[in-house]
Design a protein around this nucleic acid. Structure first.
Lengths: 192, 192
DNA sequence: AACAAAGTATACCGATCTGTATACTTTAAG
DNA sequence: CTTAAAGTATACAGATCGGTATACTTTGTT
């Protein structure tokens, strides 16, 4: 039972380095060295640095969504509590030692006009996040789940970048409070 | 009456290039070339690339806040309308040809752990933005202007990154709608 | 007219970047 | 036991990076 395949080691290392130092600032040589792997092996698994970036973001997509899903499931069965648990999950995330914002947002910032597939992975991740929230809104009985989900998603994004840029602001709590207002406003109009 | 000093030309060019291609991806040579200036002149005005970045962000700080201020003032005197005008200004911004997100947010993504002064300029810009919104909330008679301003600021940040990552989403309108709900909810509890 | 500041043109420095080449070694399956 | 895949070690290529050096030219002021 090998701990991790070389490929997974590379992705794991790249994820950490890209998150901490950014994409352009992280060289292939460093990723290979930190992974305990030669550059040749790296290039046998990934055709280029951009390929490695895309593979890394895909892995992060899976990890990140399962992170939020876990927190939501731990919040129990009440749909409103489940929705607000998203912001508790965010609060946990922001408190992590190596929180440097959302890697997808950071990636978009660095590849605003370069590699298209990088942007696509980021956009798809965010789209799936909105879909997830929309599902929770449906379960909560929101009359317009799409609209509510869009609003809550924007609150979450705003909390992430605020926590990144202005760490002294308790962005997660503020966003949760606002989300609660939006949620009640949307649900109290539900006919019965 | 010279059109622009060399220093201003450099800052203007750097602003465009950093915005479009990012910071690490934009080389000093290109900035100098596009400014019609030699590298030596560049380094006589700015001691290093990081110095140029900081100066560029300071200039953007001034430009950006006056941009929002103008839109707010054009919205008339009603405090609620003035507050919501922030999101109309954002909508205009997002529609611009060369909209690549908030350059300050992008800068934080690239310099999460490097140059401290870069992060400080970004944090200060965002702090001034929250102060500006807080002033509008006070004028609107919000019982807790700080709390409302924090919520609206997070909505604005979220709209910016959503417009950047997911252009097909009408982030500005969604954020404005949510802001309107939060605003009414905060003001309807005003005594008198 | 003289002179100092500021700018140009160009070459260079050492470091680092992505990506490739060569030659040897481990490993696992048939 | 053999053999082919996968990995290591290392060196290299060509480009670009931030930053500096040298020598000449423009420009504005007194």
């Amino acid at each position: 039972m090998p701990a991790l395949s070389k490929r997974d080691q590379l992705i794991h290392t790249a994820l950490e380095l890209f998150n901490q130092h950014g994409f352009h600032a992280t060289g292939i040589d460093l990723i290979a060295k930190e992974s305990g792997v030669t550059k040749k092996t790296l290039y046998s698994h990934f055709g280029s640095k951009d390929d490695l970036i895309v593979a890394t973001l895909r892995e992060l997509d899976v990890q990140s969504r399962s992170y939020f899903l876990k927190h939501v499931n731990e919040a129990g069965n009440d749909p409103r509590r489940r929705l607000l648990a998203i912001f508790d999950a965010a609060a946990c995330w922001f408190r992590e030692q190596n929180f440097f914002g959302c890697t997808f947002i950071n990636a978009i910032g660095e590849y605003a006009e370069g590699n298209l597939s990088i942007r696509q992975v980021c956009a798809e991740y965010k789209r799936l996040g909105r879909e997830f929230i929309k599902g929770l809104c449906e379960q909560a009985g929101a009359p317009d789940p799409q609209a509510l989900a869009d609003e809550l998603s924007i609150l979450l994004e705003g909390a992430i970048v605020t926590a990144q840029v202005s760490p002294q602001v308790d962005a997660a709590s503020i966003a949760k409070r606002a989300a609660s207002v939006l949620l009640e406003h949307a649900l109290e109009r539900t006919p019965t």
